[in-house]
Design a protein around this nucleic acid. Structure first.
Length: 602
RNA sequence: UGCCUGGUGGUGUAAUGGCAGCACAGGCGACUUUGACUCGCCUAGUCGUGGUUCGAAUCCACGCCGGGCAGCCA
């Protein structure tokens, strides 16, 4: 249906926000559908952000619009370029081939000084074609960059002056503690500040001096003049600007007053020509303020509107920045890109395709209900995607030596193995069967449980792509541990041979002991042992001690030339990908996810 | 206890006054040189009580239960 490469198999279902946008498109309310994804550059993106990203970019994609990546960087104390770079890279990876053509980037240096009659910079009005910018970017040009709220500090300042002139904002001298006390409580009205009724001229003068750096941090603020008795506490004369004598990572050292979120966000949306501003449910009480500011300034319509939806809460996962940081700091994980973490960089390193993340977050839908999504839904999306793209290989995680006594030492038997059985016309490769091979420890049981289809003393199994073997002898060491299995191969059961159709219950994977290579393989499991670690008093007490198991595996030789983006299915085991820790002399693979195992459950 | 907001199988969602559907999970079976995949079948739901209506998950009232809001964070 879609011509888009790498498009999700399922179209995004309709939801209340899409319905609203569709209505607005039908009535031509906006010249263009413009959305935005507005992270603060103070941490890494995680799968929860992926939901917001796919909603905002999806809306743009479905309505021939654009979605701006805008850094909401109004707090100089918490932000850094390090995060700008990682967030930008994560987003580009996440939407590549799906909605990257909708990514709104602006030409470097195109700042709001270059404005049109209604005060908006001209880059959103169509004078710059986002697709041109994106092609510049993808060819390595540094001529385009994301949007930054801090690029609007001049415009925001001018709007603040306008608000003062309209009598809608005032400079307050209350201390932070007094401000709190005057605000009242949700069930108790606040009180007017004694500074609330200063003249416009005095406010103008004071705000200019605040901006000029005359006052120390915390001495004064700029506040909207709304209603200290409002039942909505966010309308009790919210702060617009605070004094912060600190340099800004992007805006430099020009400013010592910085706008607050509520003030900066709606106006940044306005400046960029955003039509639909989607955020999470905790901002519902802020919407009245969003609308108030735009109205108080008398800005021309159509104005952007805020819509709120529920965040993603997956089971067995922790998503808050603070908590992920704690896992990193206390070395439960190795870093922000640890494959056990729900960060985008972690998921990517784990080998999860961007398309699987997209399909998952799109599939859960967009509602206003605080729901919990079972991680199994994500796991299904991962397997579904990997099953179609991953090439099959043979690998043995916990090798046990097996000697085929009727194959001579120098002999090697060529077997044809299928790379991509999920395709209509699968390709194949050759693997070698030799006298000595390895099989997985799990695939042999000296005293088998009921219904055990694998190898057991005196029993038969098929070696995948090769032949049926029979276990004649179990060799053990002094301690009683199995050191070697001695079997006979039935060559007539090979593909193309007379008995090739002979059936046995079990088929197991294997690699030649001599024609195989060593690799470190990291087996990951859920990071937490309970479905809702966030509900625990301390989630550290429910960290899964077995979330990482590292083994030295034997792989078929072709895996030696694996590339970082390759995805493999090690047959009967799971999906694997090369880890960046790999080097020419030391291969490292990550298990992205095991295959579904209905046998193990029983 | 002020204001805002929500409640559909175990979980996530759809149905926008007209057959409660889909996906995941779970169960049974078929197929299988992956105990995977695929295919077939099954289990299971409208928070409660009234009302409006020919007809209510949907509209109204009351109740019950949950989430959010009092940063010079975003």
């Amino acid at each position: 249906m879609s011509a888009e490469p790498n498009a999700p198999s399922a179209a995004a279902p309709s939801d209340f926000i899409r319905d609203i946008v569709a209505r607005h498109v039908a009535e031509k309310r906006y010249p263009k559908i413009v959305t935005r994804f507005p992270p603060e550059p103070n941490g890494y993106l995680h799968i929860g952000h992926a939901k917001a990203i796919c909603l905002n970019f999806g809306l743009a994609r479905e309505n021939h619009g654009i979605c701006n990546l805008r850094f909401d960087d109004t707090n100089p104390l918490k932000e850094d370029v390090e995060y700008v770079d990682s967030i930008t890279a994560d987003i580009r990876w996440l939407i590549a081939g799906w909605a990257d053509h909708c990514l709104g980037f602006k030409p470097k240096g195109a700042l709001p000084a270059n404005t049109t009659r209604d005060g908006r910079p001209d880059f959103y009005l169509g004078s710059v074609d986002p697709s041109t910018l994106n092609s510049q970017l993808s060819t390595g040009s540094a001529n385009a960059e994301p949007f930054f709220a801090s690029d609007y500090f001049d415009a925001l300042h001018d709007f603040a002056v306008e608000l003062i002139k309209r009598g809608q904002a005032y400079v307050d001298d209350l201390s932070p503690e007094e401000t709190d006390a005057y605000r009242g409580a949700p069930d108790k009205p606040g009180r007017d500040s004694p500074w609330r009724n200063r003249s416009v001229d005095e406010n103008l003068d004071l705000f200019a001096r605040m901006t000029a750096g005359e006052f120390p941090d915390g001495a004064r603020t700029l506040r909207a003049k709304i209603d200290m008795a409002s039942p909505n506490v966010w309308l009790r004369d919210p702060l617009l600007y605070r004094i912060r004598h600190a340099p800004h990572y992007h805006a430099g050292d020009k400013w010592c007053v910085y706008p607050l979120y509520d003030y900066a966000h709606c106006l940044s949306d306005y400046i960029e020509g955003v039509s639909h501003s989607a955020c999470s449910l905790e901002f519902v009480p802020h919407r009245a303020l969003y609308d108030w500011i735009l109205a108080a300034l008398g800005l021309p319509r159509p104005l952007p509107r805020q819509y709120e939806f529920a965040k993603l809460v997956p089971t067995y996962t922790i998503l808050s920045k603070r908590n992920i940081l704690r896992l990193v700091k206390e070395k439960v994980v190795t870093g922000w890109d640890d494959p056990r973490l729900p960060t985008i960089s972690g998921l990517r390193r784990r080998g999860i395709p961007a398309s699987a993340i997209r399909n998952f977050v799109i599939g859960v839908g967009v509602t206003t209900f605080n729901s919990v999504t079972e991680i199994a839904v994500f796991e299904h999306a991962i397997r579904e995607e990997l099953n179609t793209i991953a090439h099959r290989r043979l690998a043995v995680l916990r090798p046990v030596k097996l000697v085929l006594t009727n194959i001579s030492a120098g002999e090697s038997i060529e077997c044809e193995a299928t790379n991509d059985p999920q395709n209509e016309n699968p390709t194949t490769r050759k693997i070698l069967l030799t006298r000595e091979i390895f099989i997985d420890a799990d695939d042999f049981a000296e005293v088998p449980p009921p219904k055990y289809f694998r190898l057991k003393p005196g029993g038969e199994v098929r070696l995948k792509y090769a032949c049926i073997i029979k276990c004649d002898e179990v060799v053990k060491d002094a301690a009683g541990a199995v050191t070697e299995l001695r079997c006979t191969a039935d060559r007539a059961t090979r593909a193309g041979q007379p008995d090739s159709a002979r059936k046995v219950k079990g088929t197991i994977h294997w690699v030649s002991a001599t024609e195989s290579i060593d690799a470190e393989v990291r087996l990951y499991d859920r990071l937490f042992t309970v479905p809702e670690p966030g509900a625990e008093e301390d989630f550290m007490t429910v960290v899964n001690p077995h979330s990482l198991d590292t083994v030295t595996a034997r792989l078929e030789p072709s895996l030696g030339s694996a590339k970082p983006d390759d995805r493999f299915q090690f047959e009967r085991l799971g999906y694997f990908t090369l880890d960046p820790d790999s080097s020419a002399s030391h291969l490292v693979f990550n298990r992205t996810i095991p295959l579904k195992d209905t046998w193990a459950k029983k």
